[in-house]
């Protein structure tokens, strides 16, 4: 290639052009590397799902000495009792674990969703800038506390100082105590995501409402919150998903090793996650039916969180308001 005519006075005629081939190679390398890295996370997710399905399949096809299925799927879904270690023969009715999880989650949600939304409204619409940044950093600290600390907190503060003075029916462990602690844990998720949703509502909508003679509270209730609803609901679903999957708090505070089908908040319950902790901490011999059952429970848990995430995505897509 001959040298280009010096058509501009800006570039010295002695400057050597960058090799075009090298730039193309770099582009190709860049794209391939990024694709590989992205593919890695997809493959990891898929691998986890495959292992879950495979091990769950093994659990449901285990046969005893008499050749009978040890745990038919029907028993797993319909039996009301979960007692893999203590009863003979062991009982595997997952409903008891599911009810434990849902009870704790419902208590946490009843506590955290309204409080989180109110906090978000205050932060987004009322708080002066300095108060807002102070409160936000406090909430971030709350979000950074390890969940085992919440578990201690439930056992050593919530139960003896809040619950037991109210009612004598609360023992050391209860769904209520764990639920409140999980609620405190997911509060920052709700408040921070809901606040993002509220602040994303354009100021022009607030102005339009105020200019029609509505008060600030009317503007928030009739315009801002409805406009941010999809984001608020998404924050709720994400928080609930976190509560369903929460492990450490419930393992410490919700109950010992006793799973029961109940809606009593003062009762001891075992959640799906707490059961898995129990199994893998060594209560059950590897390869046995109890050990294997934790995969089936994990798969059930995965099904729950997957559905929640899916509903969240649907709501976001269906109700998203598009602003320029």
């Amino acid at each position: 290639m001959t040298s280009l005519p010096a058509s501009t006075p800006f570039i010295s005629p002695r400057a050597r052009p960058v090799r075009v081939r090298l730039r193309a190679v770099f582009e190709w390398l860049m794209e391939s590397a990024l694709f590989l890295v992205t593919g890695l996370s997809v493959i990891t997710t898929l691998a986890i799902i495959v292992i879950l399905v495979h091990e769950t399949w093994k659990f449901f096809t285990m046969r005893g000495a008499d050749g009978q299925l040890l745990v038919p799927v029907k028993d797993f879904l319909t039996d009301s009792m979960w007692s893999p270690l203590l009863s003979n023969p062991p009982r595997f009715g997952v409903a008891s674990l599911v009810s434990g999880t849902l009870l704790v989650t419902a208590i946490a949600a009843a506590f955290a969703l309204p409080l989180g939304l109110l906090t978000a409204v205050y932060l987004s619409e009322y708080a002066p800038r300095r108060v807002r940044s102070l409160l936000k950093s406090l909430l971030e600290i709350l979000a950074g506390i390890p969940t085992v600390v919440y578990g201690f907190f439930a056992l050593t503060f919530i139960t003896p100082n809040l619950l037991q003075p109210i009612s004598g029916s609360f023992g050391t462990h209860s769904a209520m105590s764990a639920g409140i602690a999980v609620g405190i844990m997911i509060l920052p998720i709700v408040s921070s995501l809901a606040e993002d949703a509220l602040r994303a509502v354009p100021q022009s909508l607030r102005d339009g409402s105020l200019a029609l003679g509505s008060t600030k509270a009317e503007t928030i209730l009739r315009v801002v919150i409805p406009a941010a609803l999809s984001g608020i609901v998404a924050s709720f679903l994400l928080a609930i998903t976190r509560a369903i999957g929460e492990t450490m708090i419930v393992a410490l505070a919700a109950g010992g090793g006793v799973a029961q089908l109940t809606v009593d908040p003062a009762a001891q319950v075992q959640t799906m996650t707490a059961y898995m902790v129990q199994v893998f901490l060594g209560d059950a011999p590897a390869g046995g039916v109890e050990y294997q059952s934790s995969y089936a429970v994990a798969f059930t848990l995965f099904a729950f969180t997957f559905v929640m995430t899916w509903i969240g995505a649907l709501i976001l897509r269906r109700y998203r308001e598009v602003y320029e």
Binding site: P202, S204, L205, D207, G208, S209, L210, A211, L212, G213, V223, P226, A227, E321
Partner: peptide, 15 residues
């Protein structure tokens, strides 16, 4: 504001 209405630069209908 009930007596003095306002129309803004960018149309801002509520969703």
């Amino acid at each position: 504001r009930r007596r003095v209405g306002m129309v803004f630069q960018k149309p801002n209908p509520f969703p």
